[in-house]
Amino acid sequence: MKKKKIRKSYTELKRTLSFERDILQNLLDNIPDAIYFKDNKNRLVRINKYYADGFKLSPEDIIGKTDFDFFQKDQAQSMFDDDTYVLKTGKPIIGKIERTLLPNGTHVCVTTTKIPIKNKKNRVIGTMGVTRDITAYDKTERTNLDMIINSLKVLDKILETKDPYTFGHTRRVSIIAEKIAKELSWEKNRILELKISAELHDIGKILIPLEILNKPGKLSELEYKMVQEHVQQSYDMLKPYSFPSKLPEAIYQHHERLDGKGYPRGLLEDKILPEAKILAICDVLESMISHRPYRQALGMDATLQELRDNTGNKYDKNIVDVVLRIINENNNKPFWLNSEPSLQPS
């Protein structure tokens, strides 16, 4: 009698577990996102229908395999590294945006969240991932970005007809800034913000009379102060609009120096944004080797000497080192003069 009860309880338990498993799988299969579970070796142990359909495979053909079986090596390695991070730290990765190449050769933009799975002893034994296709949203955002970029290009052309010295300068500063940021391995959206900051960093000069900007002789003290005010004017023009928060601030700081002797606020090194430190060096680099109405070009040697002599007190050492290396690799030539600027994310 006791054995029958045990057998009956076991059968009911199996039925209950099977029912709950089916309910869970049905729930997962009706979610329009790719959902997947991995063990502590980053092998797939459970997936939903959306995930399997994406590969046009059955779940049986996927379970037990890893991302290296489905994606290009570098892409699979990035996924593997993320899974390993979650396993080792127990911390989630939330909303990571990635561009993924599918086995069928199409690119999609996705956002991925990965969380740790823990046992009763609170030890991480695997991961769960949710990946959502945001390609349509991404295309809309890119279209909007293209419109903004094209508007900036039109503005740039208009301003250049008024003052070719200033607005040709900003375009070249943007090229230099992009090169430095790439060498520093900055994320592409941050590089894009920096490039736009460079394009707009002297926008306030449109409020300064041309006879002062292009004066062939030395500026009076009053005229020099008027020129310095372009920093505040640039900031005031951009701040009311929904630019990324660092963009107007980086422009506001691009004449600050590490020793606090810059303007307009006399900020010290730890208060100056990395973006502004890059803009400061790019601004000096491009200005000194270029001809201006009030002086001849000073040349590359004098420009590099200015950076070397003032590394650590005016200019950030790490950025100066990057600049010196880039220019050395280009045979001490101003590489930006032969480059076409692009505001597209790269």
Rank of each mutant, 00 (worst) to 15 (best):
L159W: 06
A280V: 00
A34K: 09
I212L: 09
P209E: 07
R172I: 07
T303S: 08
I180K: 02
D156M: 03
K114C: 04
I117N: 02
K120I: 13
V173F: 02
S342M: 05
F80P: 08
S18T: 14
V124D: 12
Q253G: 12
S197Y: 05
T66M: 06
M288Y: 15
N40F: 04
E269W: 01
R171Y: 07
P293Y: 06
D29P: 05
E340G: 09
Q228M: 10
L273F: 06
D29T: 04
D163R: 03
V227Q: 11
V227M: 14
N48S: 04
P216F: 06
I149C: 10
A177H: 01
D53K: 08
L27G: 14
T311Y: 13
M128K: 06
R292I: 02
E141F: 11
L307Q: 02
D270A: 09
P334K: 03
H255Y: 12
M288H: 11
N122S: 11
N330H: 02
G260L: 07
I134V: 09
E160A: 15
G129R: 01
T112K: 14
P92C: 00
D156Q: 14
E229F: 15
N331V: 13
D33A: 12
A177G: 05
A52L: 00
L267K: 10
V284A: 15
A198N: 03
V154D: 01
D69Q: 12
I191S: 02
